[in-house]
């Protein structure tokens, strides 16, 4: 009887699954397959023609500047992820363990507010703040300091990445810490574990999954971001996202841009799957 039940199609459960499957099929798997095919196309007179030509892969991956750009993007994204995680943690720890319920609600609300404004607009606002004659340098000049060059540098790029990722990381970390069983924290204290040691021995291991997910989001957003390295980093040197723009602009080499994009997707998938596997390792 139970065997018959198991074989019967569960239409209710399926109705919840199908929209997601259709969505992912239409907007992820479909375009991905097309992009893979496109990476073998050729361009003649600014028009793409279907073909099976390895030339785009050989040309793109054979250029040293691709690999320079690849490792630079990787370094920047890892850097942004580490910095975001470190900067977000004190805020999320305070919100979760020390702030009142009301304060926490308001804080989360204010962390969401930046997303109401276009990221591009926020980046242009940073240009005004970071410029040599901008707000920060004007403030520093009162103390006889500066002016310092902050725009069109790695520092500028990193500020952009933090603008993009920090609010999200604080929110995700806060939710992860909220899920930590307070009784275990108290038990650790009762057993003589110091406050700092409790954070590393009890709280962080319990909230590991949420922290890893937050970090993965930071990495994905930073790795693919075009706006921060272009408008705050001065495209100097270019990241992979800028390389996609440059490649597609010149001679409409979309197939070569597709090669760069596929390399990015493979990297992102590798990092994301590894991180998730690590996050859930102990639960298995």
């Amino acid at each position: 009887m139970s065997g018959q039940k198991a074989r019967r199609t569960d239409w209710y459960a399926l109705s919840w699954r199908v929209p997601l499957i259709v969505w992912q099929g239409l907007f992820f798997v479909g375009p991905l397959l097309f992009m893979i095919a496109m990476s073998f196309f050729i361009v003649k007179n600014y028009r793409m023609e279907a073909a099976f030509d390895w030339g785009n892969w050989i040309k793109t991956l054979g250029r040293p500047i691709f690999w320079d750009s690849y490792f630079l993007t990787l370094r920047l994204a890892f850097g942004a992820t580490i910095l975001t995680t470190l900067f977000a943690f004190p805020a999320s720890f305070f919100l979760s363990f020390h702030a009142s319920e009301t304060f926490r609600r308001w804080a989360v609300f204010f962390l969401i507010i930046p997303f109401f404004t276009s990221y591009l607009v926020r980046i242009f606002a940073w240009q005004v703040i970071l410029a040599q004659q901008g707000v920060i340098n004007a403030g520093l000049s009162l103390f006889g300091l500066g002016p310092y060059t902050m725009l069109n540098t790695m520092f500028g790029t990193m500020i952009g990445y933090l603008t993009l990722c920090l609010p999200l990381a604080v929110i995700l970390q806060t939710f992860a810490l909220n899920g930590v069983d307070r009784r275990l924290v108290e038990a650790a204290h009762n057993l003589g574990c110091g406050k700092f040691h409790t954070i590393f021995a009890v709280i962080l291991p319990l909230a590991k999954t949420g922290f890893v997910v937050a970090a993965v989001f930071c990495f994905i957003l930073s790795f693919g971001d075009f706006v921060a390295p272009y408008y705050l980093g001065g495209s100097k040197p270019p990241t992979l996202s800028i390389m996609i723009i440059d490649t597609s602009k010149s001679g409409q080499q979309w197939p070569r841009a597709a090669v760069v994009a596929l390399m990015m997707i493979v990297t992102l998938m590798g990092v994301a799957f590894s991180a998730i596997a690590y996050a859930y390792r102990r639960r298995r």
Partner: peptide
């Protein structure tokens, strides 16, 4: 110091 589009 940088490479810019029209806005930049």
């Amino acid at each position: 110091g940088g490479f810019f589009d029209y806005g930049g």
